[in-house]
Design a protein around this nucleic acid. Sequence first.
DNA 1: CCATCTTTGTGCACACGTTCACAAACGCAT
DNA 2: ATGCGTTTGTGAACGTGTGCACAAAGATGG
Lengths: 287, 287
Amino acid sequence: MAIGRPSPSSSQTPDPGAARRPSRARGIPEATVARLPLYLRALTALSERSVPTVSSEELAAAAGVNSAKLRKDFSYLGSYGTRGVGYDVEYLVYQISRELGLTQDWPVVIVGIGNLGHALANYGGFASRGFRVAALLDADPNVVGSTAAGLPVRHMDELEEIVASQHVSIGVITTPPGAAQQVCDRLVEAGVTSILNFAPTVLTVPDGVDVRKVDLSIELQILAFHEQRKAGDEPAAGDSVLDRAPGPVRAAAAKLRRAAGGKAEQAKTAPAAKGGPDDDLSAVMPA
Amino acid sequence: MAIGRPSPSSSQTPDPGAARRPSRARGIPEATVARLPLYLRALTALSERSVPTVSSEELAAAAGVNSAKLRKDFSYLGSYGTRGVGYDVEYLVYQISRELGLTQDWPVVIVGIGNLGHALANYGGFASRGFRVAALLDADPNVVGSTAAGLPVRHMDELEEIVASQHVSIGVITTPPGAAQQVCDRLVEAGVTSILNFAPTVLTVPDGVDVRKVDLSIELQILAFHEQRKAGDEPAAGDSVLDRAPGPVRAAAAKLRRAAGGKAEQAKTAPAAKGGPDDDLSAVMPA
DNA sequence: CCATCTTTGTGCACACGTTCACAAACGCAT
DNA sequence: ATGCGTTTGTGAACGTGTGCACAAAGATGG
């Protein structure tokens, strides 16, 4: 898998059903992989309470999933349960850890030590499970030299050396959006092949590089959508009948919108919330 | 939609295909909703550059998705494009904003002002798009009274009053995992019906309340899985042949694992990484 | 050794999501 | 007006994910 830039694909957190890397190669569906960490967390909690075995029903409840789904997920890893008894907690912890690659050490670099980068550096979930912060990097000379979570913030120029010498393959981007693609390119060039992107930017990477994104703003907007639905959902705010009207009506409306042109005119074609339902219609079809 | 606690369901960030609230009620698939913010961001960028229209191909490239998928997504909102021309940028910005409910004001409370809560309070993506931090809350008296992002940190006990008076319907949880469920319950009790959870905990909420989770640790583990695959993926680390072996062999192995019992014995049944591939096998089937 | 009870593992049907491919629609030039 | 090139909107096929329901497997007690 060459690191060159043959066919840059910009897939963030690959959608289910999308053209995916054959993670299916040895058979584990992507949806299952995404749930394994959840199971692992629940199992670890059970393990700490010295619970020896657990049924799929109990574990599923703890992880917030359907028990049949959980059993099917485990079946992809092999048959680690005992009928009539359940699953051996310790053994399952080990098997899932191994499958996820957590039995090895994963050095990680964090690029962009602002508020968020600082918070992540201190995040407890980092140190655990084989993840280790190899270095904190930033381009701002005012930040370089300070320390966060006991680690010194080093300059971006040291990136290549750090990645190479410490065999870093995972990078976390917490820069402002404008710098994200540039930082991403540099990470990839240095040899990083997995990137967790917190910047609100669509990253383009070569094949063979995985990108997952975490985006607060998007999550909030999705919540807002559902929230609006719950609250009665004003159906006919802007346009209404025009939307699905077949025939030349739609075309005329679209033409008008385009003719309105620059953003100064937005208020005209997009009445703020409570405009009459047929403001546009009257413009299209004068009585 | 009663706020009582009829049937607590613990669904985080509902899986595709799962028993979902009929967001489909007026027809917009969940997968589409999740992409609308992405389109909106790309469209906003175009708008700032005063681009009047955009084709599905261009916009899809900017958002990192398939153009047919984008067109189908937009078709759920209505027919806002013009064949042979493309989509009117301004108009689309408005329509998507409206569909997502971003034309109204969304006050948000953040509970748990540690490193992460602090970072989120300062996050730029918050202020924009109609989201407004109504209050920062914490239970720790040492934190209460300090300020973050120009806002005072107030005590948890003020939660109910704040939610009621400011009509807050969205809450963000950035507490340690142990406190998350408790805080969640209190948010729901106060009237919050959408929760964004950053704590690594499975939250249980009544019907009618939406929960989305953001989990750094899970994202890293998923990346590690794929990373391990790329790096050759040692297939036979722990067990191997036993996994899918039919017949009584599997049962015997499982029995042994359970017999091994407490976690003290873990090293025996779960050899650390590079143990011989058939450590267990030899125990099950002595030569 | 047998009967019974519990729980796994999975075949099957269905819902959802993605992608292809193409006709219909539209702008524009002639 | 007519024809041409472009782009949308969507029907249809396919792949993925989910959940039901049940047979098979094992444990346990007599």
